[in-house]
């Protein structure tokens, strides 16, 4: 990684992200990697607000605010327009939350990547509709409290594995990344930039407000998600070649769950079950990466 990449900055101060916002850290990293020749498509998400209300902008690159379900389609159009202008240098980046990716924007995304449209789709995942008031999404993990999964009705369904869905489209590049691992994240964003076709980045971005964690812990929590194998760091090329980027020591998921208010209702038994689910997913990933027979 070039050192000056980390030194350049495309996010202004004064944005209205919550203190300790992981999505903002993710944005800073990705834009550092992609550089100024980037156009952003921003479907409805937290960042629609963070980016500033008219006539302000928190970003130093052009942004198109788009409807919730149109992240994939709008990017397709922007790319086509740039191509018609002969501009092949500019990177088109869709920056969407988990709601706009896993749920509402899913068909546009699937359609665009099926056509192998030439753009990067980055989903910063904070595991619920945080901007509208912490409603559960299909990215919300098993066991979580949200304002629509309250009390004993905490979410008892698994989180959708979005990367595997994208991998199934056999796109050139799909990768997970975390705000707690800047070098890895920047490397993946730069790698994606230097490729053609549909590229997908799934970025783990903690949310102090929605996860009920202290703001200063947001990076620590994101790091623990990787250390516990809850959110493994890996990349897949052409839907086939898996590389696991980080092999953690045997940290227990319990540590990660205990620190977050959204999981405080879980019993030891629940946590044991979650540990099993995580182990199962990790084994599956190891097999896909060819590291288990």
């Amino acid at each position: 990684m070039q050192t000056d990449v980390m030194d350049r900055e495309f996010v202004h101060s004064g944005h209205v992200g919550c203190p300790g916002c992981g999505a903002t850290i993710a944005m800073r990293f990705v834009l550092k990697a992609l550089g100024e020749k980037t156009m952003m498509v921003l479907p409805a998400c937290c960042w629609s607000i963070i980016a500033g209300s008219y006539p302000q902008s928190a970003l130093k690159i052009p942004v198109i605010h788009a409807a919730f379900e149109t992240g994939g389609a709008t990017a397709t159009g922007v790319r086509a327009a740039l191509d018609m202008l002969g501009d092949t240098e500019t990177t088109v980046l869709t920056w969407a939350g988990d709601g706009g990716t896993f749920d509402i924007g899913f068909q546009a995304l699937s359609g665009a990547v099926e056509r192998n449209e030439n753009f990067i789709y980055a989903c910063y995942d904070n595991e619920a509709y945080m901007n509208t008031g912490i409603q559960r999404s299909s990215s919300t993990p098993y066991g979580a409290w949200t304002t629509t999964t309250t009390g004993r009705d905490w979410k008892k369904l698994r989180k959708k594995n979005i990367v595997e869905v994208l991998v199934a489209h056999r796109i050139p590049y799909a990768a997970t990344a975390s705000i707690a691992y800047p070098e890895d994240l920047l490397r993946k964003a730069q790698k994606a930039k230097n490729m053609k076709g549909s590229r997908f980045l799934h970025i783990y971005a903690s949310c102090p407000t929605g996860w009920r964690i202290p703001s200063e812990m947001s990076v620590k929590i994101a790091r623990m998600a990787v250390q516990t194998n809850i959110f493994p760091l890996y990349e897949v090329e052409d839907g086939l070649r898996y590389t696991i980027n980080y092999k953690p020591r045997e940290y227990l998921v319990r540590e990660y769950f205990r620190l977050q208010g959204r999981f405080k209702h879980l019993t030891d038994q629940d946590l044991d079950q979650i540990q099993q689910m995580v182990n199962e997913d990790w084994e599956l990933l190891l097999r896909k990466a060819g590291e288990r027979a």
Binding site: H12, S13, G14, H15, V16, P19, G52, Y54, P55, Q56, S57, A58
Partner: peptide
């Protein structure tokens, strides 16, 4: 085409 022409730096979020 509504186009932004200011940055968010006029919000002094230090007051939070």
């Amino acid at each position: 085409m509504p186009r932004t022409y200011l940055t968010t730096e006029s919000n002094k979020t230090g007051s939070w």
